[in-house]
Nucleic acid binder design. Structure first.
Lengths: 125, 125
DNA sequence: ACCTATTTGTCCGTATGTATG
DNA sequence: CCATACATACGGACAAATAGG
């Protein structure tokens, strides 16, 4: 786990951290089931605040890439549990689509045709 | 906007706040384009910390229900932009499914058959 | 064009709680 | 029982974007 941070970049530190770890997971440099270093340790070695690291970890958790629990730490999600990981996210997406009046069939089509580029997390407008 | 909080409940305050506002949006009690009260005002009137209110607002933003910008405030998302709101979320879901080795067709099926119950935000396991 | 107030964004620090091992 | 580690909430500070005068 080589984590780099550039405090001078205008990208927030927590986002840089999340991106760095996300890339490691995507590239297989950290194996499923492996535990990430504790937020406290990362904070200490990078000289950033504990909350900043936790924020990064929570972003990855919201993306379903890791799971976190007090006492246990942050663990890279098992690929074998892929569907299980996706289900709650799909349920949330479906619930939101319902609220917005988009039927399930339309939503499924949007998913089927979805591109994967540009998934940055903006301000929703 | 009638926001209720019960500090004795074991549900976190920020989650209670988000749920309260989410319900107002879903029920149409707050109109699209309407601005939510500033986090500072809410914090003052409910006697909670500013960050706690911002946390709740950020949850709603991640769900695509509102948009936030410094100086402007938090505004309820337009229903007419429903698809636009969903697209980035779909892209993220698709990207994650890709990483997990789930093909787009399977993902679309999961979405089509998705139930809407139990969409609580857990620890991913 | 300028200035000011407002409002969210990020980061730091501290404290307490809760689950895990 | 105890140490570890994340979860939540409080507080303060400064930055950046926006709106209004």
């Amino acid at each position: 786990m080589l984590l780099r941070i550039d405090p001078t970049r205008d990208e927030p530190v927590y986002a840089q951290l999340a991106a760095s770890i996300r890339a490691d997971i995507a590239a297989g440099r950290v194996v499923a089931g492996e535990r990430l270093p504790s937020a406290k340790d990362v904070a200490g070695s990078l000289d950033v605040n504990l909350h900043t690291v936790l924020h990064a970890y929570q972003v990855l958790r919201d993306e379903g890439l890791i799971s976190m629990r007090p006492g246990r730490g942050a663990v890279v999600a098992e690929r074998g549990a892929a569907v299980a990981i996706l289900l709650p996210r799909i349920a949330r997406l479906a619930a939101q689509a319902d609220e917005l009046g988009i039927d399930r069939e339309t939503l499924a089509s949007l998913v089927r045709d979805a591109g994967t580029e540009d998934i940055r997390k903006g301000t929703s407008e």
